[in-house]
């Protein structure tokens, strides 16, 4: 039974959603007609587990400095400030398992969008005013900034191919989603289901 509800209304032009249920969450598997290849994909990942980790727990995540992020193929951890990290689980089971009391489950508090594909950097640059691809190389990056007035948290995965995840407060979910669509219009952004995203995330390096 679907006991959870999406924070974001899917646009009609994205196609007909083929939905399944995951632990009570309605999840769009794919859209009909099929999305095909896309330069930029936008995928609602809000059902994924998320947490804020503060204090001692944050130090154990192995993040040396603010802005740094770690992507281990399952979860993403980003350092907001010393002793304050954000953890997102992108591929594991749909259950937030806090390691200790320094974790606070934020799964329901934030929406999470995947913004991925060859032109995703262009789209993200159009969304925020910070340089999300600075010259210094190495590792994933984490940013907390504003996107058209909405406070957002942004990960640049930097995993062989360009891809980002962006989150914000649930109540602003629709605003952020629409901002992504506006910013991506020029680049041929498509709204996709989870399958396309997983294929991209776990598929071969581009």
């Amino acid at each position: 039974m679907m006991t959870h509800a999406r924070a974001i209304a899917l646009p009609g032009w994205a196609g007909k959603p083929v939905e399944t249920q995951l632990e009570g969450w309605p999840v769009v598997e794919r859209f009909e007609p099929p999305e095909g290849d896309c330069a930029v994909g936008l995928t609602d990942l809000s059902h994924r587990p998320k947490a804020i980790v503060q204090g001692a727990g944050a130090q154990r995540l192995g993040l040396a400095r603010p802005g740094q992020a770690v992507w281990n193929g399952q979860s993403l951890a980003g350092c907001l400030k010393p002793g304050h990290a954000v953890v997102l689980d992108l591929t594991g089971p749909l259950e937030m398992k806090p390691a200790d009391s320094s974790w606070t489950d934020m799964t329901d508090g934030w929406v999470l969008l995947g913004l991925w594909g060859p032109l995703s950097l262009d789209v993200v640059q159009g969304l925020v005013t910070v340089d999300v691809e600075p010259r210094e190389r190495g590792g994933a990056l984490f940013f907390a900034t504003s996107c058209h007035g909405v406070p957002v948290q942004l990960f640049n995965l930097r995993a062989q191919k360009p891809g980002f995840v962006i989150s914000c407060a649930r109540s602003h979910g629709q605003n952020l989603f629409e901002a992504c669509i506006r910013a991506g219009r020029q680049s041929g952004l498509k709204v996709t289901g989870l399958k396309a995203y997983s294929d991209w995330l776990c598929g071969p390096a581009a």
């Binding site: 603010p66 802005g67 400030k81 010393p82 005013t129 940013f143 900034t145």
Partner: peptide, 9 residues
């Protein structure tokens, strides 16, 4: 923590 940012943030 965040680097050089616009004062409007």
């Amino acid at each position: 923590n965040c680097g050089r940012r616009s004062p409007y943030e």
